[in-house]
C-alpha cells in the first residue's frame, strides 16, 4: 500500500484514494462530429502501460478532489502529483 501526496491534503495512505485510470484523455467537445472509430478511440482505448503512466486519482475518502499522478505501474514509484488543469510534468 503506497502513500499518495494529495495536492490538497498532503500524505495519506493509498486506501483513501481511488484510481480513475489514464489521465489527459479529454472528452471531445463535439462528439456528434466524430466517426464511430474516433468516438471508440476516446471511449474504450487505454494504454495500460507497464512503466511510467499518467493517471487520474480521486481522494475519495478525503477531500473528494480529483488530481493527476505520475506512477511507475511496475514498482508503484510515484514521480509527481499535480492538480487537474495543470501542465503534466516531463518525466
Amino acid at each position: 500500500m503506497f502513500v499518495i501526496n494529495c495536492p490538497y491534503c498532503g500524505e495519506r495512505d493509498q486506501s483513501e484514494f481511488s484510481c480513475g485510470g489514464e489521465a489527459h484523455i479529454v472528452r471531445p467537445k463535439q462528439p456528434t462530429e466524430l466517426s464511430d472509430d474516433e468516438w471508440a478511440e476516446y471511449l474504450f482505448m487505454r494504454k495500460n502501460i507497464k512503466g511510467v503512466q499518467f493517471e487520474r486519482w480521486n481522494h475519495a475518502h478525503g477531500c473528494r478532489k480529483w488530481f493527476n499522478m505520475v506512477r511507475d505501474t511496475s514498482n508503484d514509484k510515484i514521480y509527481a502529483v499535480y492538480k487537474m488543469g495543470e501542465k503534466p510534468p516531463v518525466i
Binding site: G20, V26, R27, R56, N58, R64, K65, W66, M84
Partner: peptide
C-alpha cells in the same frame, strides 16, 4: 458527477 465537474 463530481468527476465531470472537476475534470471535464
Amino acid at each position: 458527477l463530481e468527476d465531470y465537474l472537476q475534470t471535464e
